[in-house]
Nucleic acid binder design. Structure first.
Lengths: 144, 144
DNA sequence: ATAATTGCAAAAGCTTTGCATGGCC
DNA sequence: GGCCATGCAAAGCTTTTGCAATTAT
């Protein structure tokens, strides 16, 4: 079922379906909080000890190129990954490595309107992302 | 003159004034486009060949801790630095490594109002930054 | 069949660390 | 003088690379 979805994603991008690619995609989906490459290789190795680290990196690169996953920028210097989806923003905890998604259509509209009015010279906007930095006041999700 | 300012910055933070720290600050200010640590060490070494790479990293760390400079997150996996200043946002070129600052008080007000209304649960916002991704259509500054 | 992907292991960054030396306050 | 910062070089980590062997289409 879930496997079937992954296979479909790969086929849609005309990528070959390999056990390694499925394993990496499962890892990113299975791990929450926007895992680092290392977390991903760790997860993959637990479930498939025979998959090489270098392969995981190559698969990640392929996924990013094909927009199946996206890189997330952090305050720190480690790259994180997430399965690619709608436009969304991120809440960064300033005291831990927690990252959560923030999606809100009103916000997107607001930004779009703002930049339509503002009209930056010499720059064509393709994407806008907010980094909302602060502190989580409990362990629950932020979602309303 | 400029040197004097740097010294003052350091003293304000109760940091010892050393030639190495001055050199690193000069490098960040001299290099445009939010230099990487490597660019900074390169610049420093040209002007002061005797300053060690490790020292530059230590100085950068000290500066970041003391909020004299800030790290800038990029799409890629390299960390960039900038002299710390007012709240501002960044324009990222999707086709090169160019980064420019974007400041606009209207935008800040807009965001503040939005989040005042929205009231995220379980999260206290301390800072908001926009990553505006797109293409520069010429080589000039974006500033109006 | 054949072109792409993988595994392996080595190498390549970039960054950090430890400690003795030297320099700022 | 005392403590902090520096230089140096080694080690650490994550990520990349090359190539032969394997696999998907």
């Amino acid at each position: 079922m879930k496997n079937k979805d992954i296979i479909e994603k790969l086929l849609n991008k005309r990528l070959k379906v390999t056990p390694q690619r499925i394993a990496v995609m499962e890892a990113i989906e299975g791990l929450k909080n926007h895992p680092t490459a290392e977390k991903i290789t760790g997860f993959v190795k637990i479930h498939h000890p025979n998959i090489a680290t270098g392969t995981v990196y190559k698969v990640l690169e392929t996924f990013v190129e094909n927009k199946l996953v996206a890189k997330v920028k952090t305050e720190k210097d480690v790259m994180r990954y997430e399965t690619h989806s709608e436009v969304h923003h991120h809440l960064y905890c300033s005291e831990s490595d927690r990252i959560e998604d923030y999606e809100d259509e009103d916000l997107n509209i607001l930004l779009k309107e703002y930049f339509n009015k503002k009209k930056l010279r010499n720059f064509r906007i393709s994407d806008i992302r907010l980094q909302i930095i602060g502190k989580f006041t409990n362990n629950n999700s932020i979602k309303n």
